[in-house]
Amino acid sequence: MRATLRKANTYLSVQYAAMLEYRMEIFLWAISTLLPLIMMGPWIVAGESGRFPMDAAGFARYFIAAFIVRQFTLTWVIYEFEFQVVSGRLSPYLLHPVDPVWRFVAAHLGEHLARLPFVIALIAAALALFPQALYDSGGGLWLPPMERIILTIFGIYGAFTLRFVIQYSLALLAFWFERVSAFDRLVMIPYYFISGLIAPLEVMPEEVQAVILWTPFPYMVWFPARLLSGGGGLDPWRGFAVVGLWIVGLTLLNRLLWRRGLKHYSAMGA
């Protein structure tokens, strides 16, 4: 147990230090994920009309929360893994006594940490743009209660795990196909439109909502963002149960692909 913790600590600090080298790039990446804050604009105006299930402040809170969730769930393992398999650089890592996946996980967590200062600055800018998000309908200060913040943190890391397992499973297909990042592009299409990144589920037709809730997508943005911003008839436990089921199922698939893929990889002699 202690040895594992020590390894985890080393991996994380190494990857965090590596990411700090790219501060400027990470800042630009943070800018490139502004989409929820852009979408906040038309939805605030729509909310002011009073024809939607949320008011302007509700939309603002939701999209700021979605922005936060997105910052801590960004995943790029497929690009790294594809490169390592095609170029053969995966081979030395296979000789390490630790599964290479942990290196990728640590790199992602390190990058999220390096991103933190920019994220805080951008949230402050968003709140400056629309300070009403901080006040409740009575004019008092609006803050999420402590237990919701804790639930949100679990929700965000559940979302990250889900997104990571999906992308890593697709990445494992690199043992058989080249250019697997194209598969991830296809998965990204529903992710963009039904995860809650550009519109909260509540504004969608009910039949559509019912279907979407069975897919893993809304649990990657909408569910944690709702936990943080509150509102909506959300049942956190049901949400966590669905996230857990998806993670377990996909992890099993992932391990199967990994075993089969490794055989294929060495068989290629790469």
Binding site: E25, L28, I31, S32, L34, L35, I38
Partner: peptide, 10 residues
């Protein structure tokens, strides 16, 4: 060159 990705997002 990431700066163009930032532009693309806006």
């Amino acid at each position: 060159w990431n700066i163009t990705i930032a532009l693309q997002s806006i």
